[in-house]
């Protein structure tokens, strides 16, 4: 299944998610994390998109996965945060 969301991060920027997911398993097939936020290093967002494949579309699973990718790659978000990114992804399900 395919879905999109637009979410204004509180005190941050506009996040746009484009998601293709497996509705049966409730897992991510493909995700694009877009918007006018900042992330350092920028290329890490593509790594994040790859790492999120097959992740369960569940708040705790997403928070855990995103946090681990951030820690592993020393990513710094500005105008975006882990909760906001998780929220944006889950909004695609509504």
């Amino acid at each position: 299944m395919q879905s999109k969301s637009v979410y204004k991060i509180p005190n941050g920027k506009l996040l746009k998610i484009s998601l293709i997911y497996n509705g049966k398993d409730n897992t991510i097939d493909q995700i694009s994390i877009m918007g006018d936020f900042f992330a350092y290093p920028e290329e890490a967002i593509e790594y994040m998109e790859n790492e999120l494949k097959n992740t369960f579309l569940d708040k705790n699973c997403l928070l855990e996965k995103i946090n681990s990718v951030i820690k592993e790659n020393n990513i710094e978000f500005i105008g975006l945060d882990v909760e906001g990114l998780t929220q944006g992804i889950l909004m695609c399900l509504k």
Partner: peptide
């Protein structure tokens, strides 16, 4: 456009 933006959007 910013690095993370979709050109066509």
């Amino acid at each position: 456009i910013g690095y993370f933006q979709s050109l066509e959007e």
